[in-house]
Amino acid sequence: MPKNAQNKMRYIFLKRIFSSPIMVLAFAVIAILYYFLIHFLITVSSHGLFLITLPSYFIYMLSLTSSLLMTISIYQIHISLKNRILAVGEGATSAITTIAGGLITSCGCSSPILSTILYGIGVNIIGVSGAISFVASNQEWLIGIAILANLILSYYSLGKLYRLHAKKPKEKGR
């Protein structure tokens, strides 16, 4: 299939997903949940206060793109089950990028979450201080990468969707 046609199919599937009220609801609910997850991570890291040193639209963008990826994955699972084709969604990645985003955003001068995780896996003080410094000073870039990863995976998942949809259901017992 030519590339233009592939992109058109992706667009059609995106439209199809968001023409379903349930999917729109799922998208909204997941976006809110992801936002709360990031909020929670930042709050715990900042002694119970929601303090950020990044513009808040980074957090909104991350929640929305993670939710988009998760919604596409849910739809993908739905289609694959309908067509009885084994397929794995990229939903888990959206959770990973959200948590990573939360850790990155919550990382500042003091990073109890990140340091606890790093010490927990055996990293020493030199590694921990280096990681805190690196993450804190590259927050924008790292969050940008997480958002981009969500968008690229969403694009990939939409491509996978139309390929899945094109497949005929497997009829067992024939």
Partner: peptide, 25 residues
């Protein structure tokens, strides 16, 4: 899994609840 994510993040943060692992310099 969403609930588990939140709970596991919380337990990771609560120093007293995770294994007290010594990390040498």
């Amino acid at each position: 899994s969403m609930i588990a994510l939140i709970i596991s993040s919380y337990s990771l943060l609560t120093k007293g609840e995770i294994v007290y692992k010594t990390v040498y310099i």
